[in-house]
């Protein structure tokens, strides 16, 4: 029971219930603005019936040719509003937008230690496509997880790589 709507600049002033969570990064203002300027339809918040921001998703499309894909930059839900399926709803939304943009797949990066999130993404149909060495500060590795969209019926984009890559090898 949620309203999913476009994120506006005013939301930045009241997303603290979500952003005080230690795993949710608070970026510089222009970072959000760049996303809002370039991919407004990928910036969605989930708002409760009483007007609180419950969570949000940020994403974009990028890549060329068969690498044209949707990317999840952040998806996060405030502690009080977890276990309601909100993250799934937001991810569905992002996948829907990516479908409309004729993307081949959606990908995301997650800390290898973040088991809760990895499990959730797996439930949503994502697989670990490759491991990216020392991607995060503090030298933690990332999993690059992917889910093919309808434009990639053979799910070519999801065939895992055998070897890990370094961040500078990312395309």
């Amino acid at each position: 029971m949620t309203t999913i709507r476009r994120m506006t600049c005013d939301d930045l002033f009241k997303f603290n219930l979500v952003n005080l969570d230690p795993l949710t990064e608070t970026y510089g203002i222009s970072f959000y603005m760049q996303y809002m300027a370039h991919w407004p339809e990928y910036m969605q918040v989930a708002e409760s019936a009483s007007g609180q921001i419950m969570g949000y998703i940020m994403g974009k499309t990028e890549g060329h040719g068969e690498h044209w894909h949707g990317h999840v930059t952040a998806v996060t839900v405030a502690p009080t509003f977890r276990r309601l399926g909100l993250a799934r709803k937001l991810m569905d939304y992002l996948e829907d937008v990516s479908e409309r943009k004729r993307a081949y797949f959606v990908d995301l990066f997650v800390r290898v230690s973040n088991k809760v999130a990895i499990d959730m993404y797996e439930k949503l149909g994502y697989v670990v496509y490759r491991r990216v060495l020392e991607y995060y500060s503090g030298d933690e590795d990332a999993f690059d997880m992917r889910k093919a969209l309808s434009r990639d019926p053979g799910k070519q984009s999801m065939i895992p790589l055998k070897h890990p890559v370094r961040p500078d090898e990312l395309d």
């Binding site: 506006t8 600049c9 005013d10 930045l12 510089g28 603005m33 809002m36």
Partner: peptide, 30 residues
Amino acid sequence: NVKDTTDCLIAAYKVGSFQQIPEFIELKRR
């Protein structure tokens, strides 16, 4: 450090995100 939100405003024109333009100006004012 926050002053340069103007580049985002320019980006909004470049990509045609017209509805964000008044929002960005308002954010800058806020």
